[in-house]
Amino acid sequence: MILGWEREVLKQAIENLGNHTIQGVWRIGFACRFFLAVLLHSGTAFRRFGLTIREMYFTGVLSLIIILVSGLFVGMVLGLQGYETLQRYGSESALGTLVALSLVRELGPVLAGLLFASRAGSAITAEIGLMKTTEQLSAMEMMAVDPLARVVAPRFWAGVISMPLLAALFSAMGILGGYLVGVRLIGVDEGTFWSQMQGSVDFTQDILNGVIKSVVFGLAVTTIALFEGYDAPPTAEGVSGATTRTVVTSSLVVLALDFVLTAFMFRGLN
């Protein structure tokens, strides 16, 4: 009797796991199809670039403050911590290298991606989800205007264009922050700071790879945000749930993608 009961619970648990797996794979499949559909409907986003520019204001310009301020602080912390560690080995002169490499390779794209996901991604999901809930998307479709082309694609491209710019700004601000703390505050030699940095940061290897990373993150975050919004159940809870999922999923995807990309870019070459 008891054995039967336990077996039932176990069966239930395995069934649940199976169910979640199937659901998960379905969603990934839908998201991929959605991504392709957005690419196919991108004509309007470029023909009427004004639409994309408008969305760049919301995704890019409005994310500027958080990106610039965070970048500055992260750079300043790097300057302090890096100096603390490096001076134990008498290598304060490598501070510029440390700050620049960490920012350009990793922290710039990744942190900008995470901030972008929570600032712009959640806003996109909420907006699209609300448009769906209030039947604005259906209305558009009934007016013979494809929401994928008119609403989704411009936001997609705005995100993809904004993201590398934001990441570059983040890195630049960070280096500025590291410079302020390292050179202005602590007194590392200014010439050494910049020349060591220039000597060890490579344009293609480091900067270009960082830009590629940020473009990939931009693609991933905007696709997830748009998909979650487009797919949200048309209720208030549905939209709020989708917004949360956007932030969680895209943050995880950014970090996972970062690992994969780093492995390809920096490991594969040595």
């Binding site: 710019l165 570059a168 290897q205």
Partner: peptide, 18 residues
């Protein structure tokens, strides 16, 4: 500003060593 930041990274921070 974004392109400026990229240029800053390219010219002031990095160098083409290849």
């Amino acid at each position: 500003a974004g392109i400026g930041a990229l240029l800053f990274l390219a010219l002031k921070v990095g160098s083409t060593s290849t």
